[in-house]
Amino acid sequence: MTAEPVSIAEGVVPRTFAVLEVLAQSSEPMRLSAVALRLGLQKSTAHRILAALIGLGFAQQSPETGCYSATLKLWELGANVITEHPIKRAASGFLQELQRATGETVSLVIRADDDVLYLDKMISPRPIRFTTRIGSRVPAPLTAGGKAILAHASDASAVLERTAVALGDRRRLDVAALTAELEQVRERGYAMAGYQPGVVGFAAPIMTRGPEAAAAISVSAPAERVDEAGRREIIEHLLSTCASMAERVGRL
């Protein structure tokens, strides 16, 4: 099925970034016609933008196929931004300690519009591990980390509504049930979620000076590996780690 064209703002700069984003998100090099169709652009416009991106070093064209792809220059810029992010710098030691204590995969997420963005991750050395890539985004209401952040967000209801519309029939969200769940998360201090079947996630927010969460730390594990005692132990380590990190971030 052909994807619907992406809605982009008028102007050269928004269109240029839209083309670069499409190339970066594609799992394989793209033909000029595919880029134009995806963004609802004329082929001539898409060609000019791609030529400019090649000149700037952000895109490349295969001499064999004529297809376009993003270069590593975009990754270099993103890597610099992530490395210098104050929350990521502060979190490294805490994530390592939590991963050693639980033996499971530990992630650091921040809010990015209606999604959560994975800033860092410590992978479990144990078999059957669950992982998302650093730099990937997931709709916030679907993840434990996202729920931990949204529980303290002033616009949480709006995020739930927009996400429900965006997901549509692919994954129906019960907005009323999620609203009640966020209230429970705020009261008990942690969230739970099963983003993928057979996987359980626990997360707690990093609360600093303001009323909203600066980030969240999550612990993900196969459900079959987490019994009631294991659940309590993970939550205890998680809450302790987030409290310590909040104190550290608050001093930055």
Rank of each mutant, 00 (worst) to 15 (best):
V106M: 02
P63N: 11
L98W: 10
L98C: 08
V185E: 00
D120V: 03
R162A: 15
T131C: 14
V6S: 02
A204N: 08
G55C: 00
E64S: 09
L41R: 05
Q184W: 02
G145I: 06
V185Q: 04
E21H: 11
T131M: 13
K147V: 08
E64A: 13
G55R: 02
L173F: 04
V185T: 06
A59Y: 14
D114M: 07
T102Y: 11
P127F: 15
P63M: 08
G55I: 04
M245Q: 10
G250V: 10
P5W: 15
P29H: 11
V200M: 11
F202A: 03
V12F: 05
G168T: 13
P205R: 04
M192W: 01
E183R: 12
P125C: 14
A243T: 15
L41I: 04
P5G: 06
A144M: 02
L95Y: 08
V219T: 14
D169A: 15
E76V: 14
S33M: 05
S157V: 12
E10C: 03
P63C: 06
W75M: 05
F58C: 00
I234P: 00
F58H: 07
G55D: 08
C67Y: 14
G210N: 05
L77R: 13
V81Y: 12
V200F: 06
I235N: 09
A158S: 10
I149G: 01
M245W: 13
L72K: 09
S244E: 10
V249W: 08
A148K: 01
G194F: 05
K121C: 13
H85G: 01
L252V: 13
A246K: 05
G250F: 10
L39Q: 02
L108S: 07
V13P: 00
G57W: 01
V22Q: 13
V159H: 03
L142E: 05
A213W: 08
V138Y: 07
A3F: 12
S136N: 03
A166I: 06
